[in-house]
Design a protein around this nucleic acid. Structure first.
Length: 498
RNA sequence: GUCCAGUUCGUCUAGCGGUCAGGACUCCGCCCUUUCACGGCGGCAACACGGGUUCGAUUCCCGUACUGGAUACCA
């Protein structure tokens, strides 16, 4: 089995493109086949120079390594369509010779006029078809001599596919079953543009055949033009590959996930944005895998390696799917939690660049924040209390924490802490339990005010971990600050001295 | 307009003639916990509609509606 992902370098890799690449990759891996990358750069007008590098970078980030492609020649290259012009010329000549293609000299203005003239309410988009072509400037309407002369004089022209009239093209789609479309619904597709480059339709058929592609897995937007491709294979005397058209990713507001709609919904469209936002690649991959494919069981967590062994086309859905940031966020948090503290610490490092933290301090933060973050970046953002005393306390827990006996309790606690030498979280845990017991108070009576004094918030990581991280001096310092600031905030709503 | 696809909780989905229509995300409640979170338990919530076929349709067939895609010298 040989499959390919064939993006066009017209922009940053789209999230939907990544999913198409993923499904191709998984199918290849599942069957010990080859995953090929081909750059379809036949549109000079829309070419974006940095797009290819972005595609390569995005695929590598996601872990989708290709077996053949740019920089990985394997006898089927080149893998850039712009470098294969000779190849296309050869086959288009065959089509010309067999009468399955013809020259057309119409300018874009001519085409516009034709469409304008033939346009009616019932037929808003007139086709360049078996009837229309007789009234245009091409091999059908012109004499052989006139055509030759035009070619000789270098008149701009395209080569169009001569569609047979009144023919029903049937093909099997791996996901949708039998599909049939009549040629009366299609037009004489341009195969070779006036700039000498092929259109997608020609290039894709020629390349897929020459590269030995056995399964074409692509987006559903290609379904209606597949009959043209089937016909092309037939005209060229080739066996067509299997086709599988994936359901499209829809925006939550409906419609294809376009750049504009995605932005409105707060969904990044390009993979680049996910990389920059610090998403976990395995989380995105897992999410994308389940967006249109189902394993048939209740399991949802699948690393790429596992997906590679269980993926199959027959479990790909047929209907469009909406992208859900909520679900993706959940996957991201889940994968973050699956990391070891050391691994997570490495993920956090870029976000703590300005903090000058030791590896063990970073790992301590990783442990404290692991279960309460959805993104790596949040660990540092949400633990600012580790680096500076609170500017104010949360009102609700403060009211709950500040009782009549609290000052006295905190004083005693602070004094006892002063005498401690072992400031590990394990020991602090024992210490605090003993303290509460000796004072005949519940744990909460002392822990809530202390937590508030240290972090300013009613919730958060283990108090003992926090104390251990801050160290003895800072812990005691923040508790003593609380003596004046807590009553102050309670009576005036403001914190003094800050 | 025409053609091609599609339609199960808000979302992703399981289901392939007989199920209390299952799971996940979101939301809500309870438990665990010093707190928050994680986790556990529980709850809200779906077969687009109308005809057939059948003893019986979410499941098969036909139609309608709706949704999406295509209709370029773009992919």
């Amino acid at each position: 089995m040989r499959v390919r992902f064939a993006p066009s370098p017209t922009g940053f890799l789209h999230i939907g493109g990544l999913r198409t690449a993923l499904y191709n990759y998984l199918l290849a891996k599942r069957h010990n086949g080859k995953f090929i990358l081909r750059i379809e750069d036949t549109d000079q007008a829309r070419f974006v120079p940095e797009a290819e590098a972005d595609i390569l970078r995005s695929l590598a980030w996601a872990g989708l390594d290709f077996d053949e492609g740019p920089g990985k020649e394997a006898g089927h290259g080149p893998y850039y369509q712009s470098q294969r012009s000779e190849v296309y010329r050869e086959y288009v000549q065959q089509l010309l010779d067999k009468g399955h293609a013809y020259y057309a000299f119409d300018s874009s203005a001519d085409l516009e006029h034709m469409r304008e003239r033939l346009k009616t309410a019932e037929n808003p988009q007139p086709k360049y078809d078996a009837v229309t072509r007789l009234h245009m400037r091409n091999s059908f309407s012109m004499s052989k001599e006139a055509v030759d002369a035009a070619l000789q004089s270098g008149e701009p022209h395209v080569i169009r596919m001569a569609l047979p009239a009144q023919t029903v093209v049937r093909f099997k789609d791996q996901i949708r079953g039998e599909v049939e479309i009549g040629t009366d619904q299609l037009d004489d597709q341009v195969l070779m543009k006036s700039d000498g480059l092929p259109t997608y339709h020609l290039a894709n058929v020629v390349d897929d055949h020459l590269m030995g592609i056995t399964h074409v897995v692509r987006g559903e937007e290609w379904l209606p033009s597949t009959p043209k491709h089937v016909l092309l294979y037939r005209f060229l005397g080739w066996e067509a590959p299997e086709f599988a058209h994936l359901p499209l990713i829809l925006s939550p507001s409906g419609g294809k996930l376009s750049k504009r709609k995605a932005e409105e919904a707060g969904i990044p469209v390009s993979v680049k944005e996910y990389i920059e936002a610090g998403y976990e690649p395995d989380a995105l991959i897992n999410f994308l895998a389940l967006l249109g494919w189902s394993p048939g069981t209740d399991q949802e967590i699948f690393p790429l390696s596992v997906l590679s062994s269980i993926f199959s086309l027959d479990r790909v859905g047929q209907s469009g799917v909406q992208f859900s940031m909520d679900k993706l966020r959940w996957f991201n948090a889940h994968y973050l939690r699956m990391r070891s503290p050391a691994e997570l610490a490495e993920r956090l490092r870029p976000y703590a660049a300005d903090k000058n933290l030791t590896p063990s301090a970073l790992e301590a933060i990783a442990r404290m924040m692991q279960e309460r973050i959805h993104f790596a970046s949040e660990a540092i953002e949400q633990s600012s209390f580790l680096f500076a005393p609170p500017l104010r306390y949360e009102d609700k827990p403060l009211k709950k924490a500040w009782k009549a006996h609290t000052p006295e309790l905190l004083t005693a606690f602070s004094d006892a802490l002063e005498r401690e030498t072992d400031f590990t979280s394990e020991h602090l845990n024992d210490f605090l339990h003993q303290f509460a017991e000796s004072r005949q108070v519940g744990l909460g009576a002392v822990m809530l005010p202390v937590r508030l004094a240290l972090t300013g918030a009613g919730g958060g990581p283990s108090l003992f971990e926090i104390m251990a991280f801050l160290g003895k001096a800072e812990t005691i310092n923040r508790i003593s600050m609380a003596f004046t600031q807590m009553p102050n905030q309670l009576s005036t709503g403001l914190v003094s001295g800050i």
